[in-house]
Write a protein that binds this DNA or RNA. Structure first.
Length: 329
DNA sequence: CAAGCGTGGCC
DNA sequence: TGGCCAAGCTT
């Protein structure tokens, strides 16, 4: 009968680290941010990966770094350029804060990215997780990370709820001090590919012998949150190779300054060009897109050449619609 | 500390 | 089809 891990026993923690790291080195996914130690590139990846799927990040990461290859390139870009490169990734506040932080690094640190978790933590958009991730992966600082994956892995491993500071202490106690970057990524990789939400794939788990809840079902707390269903009508105005876009006010709380299709009058009776479903944060939208004339009260609208649309920070919904209509690659 | 912030892919 | 997320941070 295998025994569950006891964090106070060095033989247990050693065995855990070895098994996890060996597994990680054999099974890790090949990802672009794992092929570099450039702190700026790792920083960008960590911000993009916040609450965002790897597949979605992959599409944007390469393009973003081609456009902004160094922290200085990013710092000297305009916010609109940065948001345009971020378009589709969501959580645009991340891009604004990354841009602000890059400006700080460029102007106050001669473009040198901070090399410790404590200094990284000061930059806008970098919290405890991100600071520790960059410091451990790029600089080998022995600081543990806790994200959704790590928390789930640890709670299953020890079969108990670990709240607040306790999770961080636990992660730190397990951390491999000689390869903190690989260890942190290994914990997250395990959570993302083996110790997944719902039913975990324990058969393939490298540390199952030490896991207290191995193979046991756990009931995830059901979240009641029901999203609101709403509908809207948008207008597609096309003049030769240009379309009409409208910029959201800069003082909007939600996606300020970003570009989208103007609203159509609600009483349009014709059939829409297109219907799309779109979910954002708290609402599920059913959107109808009509072709039509320039609306009378169109504030802050501009006729934008199709070739220039990709340079603008457009919302994800706008991107989705224009792609469906083959107006955007 | 809970709420708010976006999106596209998956089962 | 549609509910459920995914390498968090800020307020």
């Amino acid at each position: 009968m295998p025994h569950a891990i006891d964090l106070t026993k060095p033989t247990h923690t050693r065995s855990f680290r070895r098994n996890l790291l060996t597994w990680y080195r054999e099974h890790q996914r090949s990802l672009p941010w794992r092929k570099t130690r450039d702190p700026y590139r790792i920083w960008v990846s960590e911000i993009m990966l916040q609450q965002t799927r790897v597949a979605a990040v992959l599409e944007h990461y390469k393009r973003f770094l081609k456009k902004f290859p160094t922290v200085r390139h990013l710092a000297f870009a305009t916010e609109a350029e940065v948001l345009a490169a971020w378009s589709g990734l969501g959580y645009y506040r991340r891009a604004r804060m990354l841009h602000r932080a890059a400006k700080l690094v460029a102007t106050e640190r001669s473009g040198r990215v901070p090399q410790t978790a404590a200094e990284l933590r000061i930059l806008p958009g970098i919290g405890r997780y991100t600071a520790n991730a960059i410091a451990s992966i790029a600089f080998g600082e022995p600081v543990a990370v806790v994200d959704g994956n790590v928390e789930r892995v640890l709670e299953r491993l020890l079969q108990k709820k670990l709240s607040g500071e306790i999770v961080w202490r636990t992660a730190q106690a397990l951390l491999d001090l000689t390869s903190p970057g690989d260890f942190n990524q290994a914990m997250m990789e395990l959570g993302a590919t083996i110790c997944i939400p719902g039913v975990p794939l324990c058969y393939d788990c490298p540390i199952k012998k030490q896991c207290a809840s191995r193979g046991m079902e756990r009931k995830e707390p059901p979240i009641p949150g029901k999203r609101m269903r709403r509908s809207s009508s948008l207008l597609l105005v096309r003049r030769r190779d240009a379309i009409l876009l409208q910029q959201r006010a800069h003082n909007e709380r939600f996606m300020p300054g970003m570009w989208e299709l103007p609203e159509a009058a609600s009483e349009i009776a014709r059939e829409p060009l297109l219907r799309v479903k779109h979910s954002i944060t708290t609402s599920d939208w059913s959107v109808s897109v009509f072709s039509g004339p320039v609306p009378r009260l169109a504030l802050k609208t501009h006729l934008v050449p199709l070739a220039g649309v990709s340079q603008l920070p457009i919302t994800g919904l706008t991107r989705k619609i224009l792609r469906k209509l083959n107006l955007l690659s």
